[in-house]
Design a protein around this nucleic acid. Structure first.
Lengths: 228, 228
DNA sequence: GTCTATAGTCGGATAGAC
DNA sequence: GTCTATCCGACTATAGAC
């Protein structure tokens, strides 16, 4: 697997390198400012590889979005799996549903707001919501739909609320709080005089969002012993 | 003020027409996809007028952003004015602060989520948060900073909370809920099978956000008679 | 102050050698 | 499968007539 020391450098596995670089560049600049030249340069791969492997810039973009969604699925999979296994043994108790909900939101915040790569990926996701492209289908069907469905179900189980529409609205509002801190990062950074969120800030954000969520869902502070 | 019926059509007040069209086109397509040709065509003005009046595409964009911020200021000005006048007579009571807060959020939701032009403008605002350009200063200093400051102050007065940092985080989370419904519009529309928000949906959204806000801020349901 | 014509730049995709 | 060279198209901005 060692590369030739000579100049041209064949750069094997160009496909993977391109996807990696594409997530980075598209995330940083957005679809239309990012150029295939930038991406090829970052991947240290020839520009012609892009139409070759992905039949164009747009194909590469879709592949990158798909990969990002995969990363998020991966992050959430432990909790999702746990919920699945627990559900086999019968319906969740409210306090269980609540702690699953908190686990999901916590993971989301840590990844989308806190980590170094998450925020860049979050930009792509959010951008697709503002200006949906052909890649939005991937985001909707593999990420937004399952997430809103899952969260509204958990809110229902935790709160006892049953109206599905109301639950969906609550779920969107709750997820929206998480996204707000990603979107408002710029304003927060200026207004609070930070330069990006540190671990402390992420912890504070998590605390506020989880507290709001518990309250919004109508769960009293002394919950946990009730409902059984 | 009547125009010549002849072909070339001089198109007076080109400046205003350009700003009007720019808000529309930039809002619909985003800065880089929107072209000066589109805007000039929509404004029924010659392309060369753009560098002439605004010294380029970017200058026109800034002018459009500034105008949008002005429109939002205008929408909120009645409440802001009322708060200012009331504040002269002494500090606000908690229930007064709450109802001002609700008025502001309600206006925001109606305009940014519900109305026909608001959502298009909201796209520009949100986009600037994801990919700040030279126009972000305008948005931050004339809109985000005052809004977060005002809302966190009102939350403080309504809830009795005093820690400024916590209040700011709460304010961002609360505003984030409003934005969530603009961002998630696409997903909501698909997931709930609507096509755009109707008046009914806007009312539901308003109800949910205001309810969450009251609860998040820690105001009991039977509030209003307390604190005096 | 508004227009036409054009210059100058750049990005994406293709052709074809290796 | 990777590379070089090149083409084509599109966009912004400028020059200069009216």
């Amino acid at each position: 697997m060692v590369q030739k020391e000579n100049s041209p450098a064949p750069a094997a596995n160009a496909r993977e390198r391109l996807i990696e670089a594409a997530m980075d560049i598209f995330g940083q600049y957005g679809f239309d400012i990012a150029t295939t030249r930038m991406i090829a340069a970052a991947a240290e791969v020839n520009i012609a590889s892009i139409p070759y492997y992905f039949s164009g810039k747009e194909g590469l973009y879709q592949a990158a979005v798909s990969h990002i969604v995969g990363l998020i699925e991966e992050r959430l999979s432990p909790v999702v799996k746990e919920i699945g296994e627990r559900s086999l043994k019968g319906p969740l108790f409210p306090d269980e549903a609540l702690s699953f909900l908190e686990a999901i939101l916590g993971t989301l915040i840590e990844y989308m707001v806190g980590s170094t790569d998450g925020p860049r990926f979050a930009r792509i996701i959010l951008r697709e919501h503002l200006f949906p492209s052909s890649a939005y289908d991937i985001i909707f069907s593999r990420m937004m739909e399952p997430m809103v469905h899952g969260i509204s179900t958990l809110i229902g189980l935790a709160s006892g609320e049953t109206a599905p529409r109301l639950l969906k609205l609550r779920a969107v509002a709750v997820v929206g709080q998480v996204m707000a801190f990603r979107i408002a990062r710029e304003a927060m950074v200026r207004g609070l005089g930070m330069e990006g969120y540190s671990q402390t800030e992420v912890a504070e954000i998590k605390e506020v969002v989880l507290e709001h969520t518990r309250r919004a869902v109508g769960i009293p502070a002394d919950f946990g012993k009730q409902g059984r």
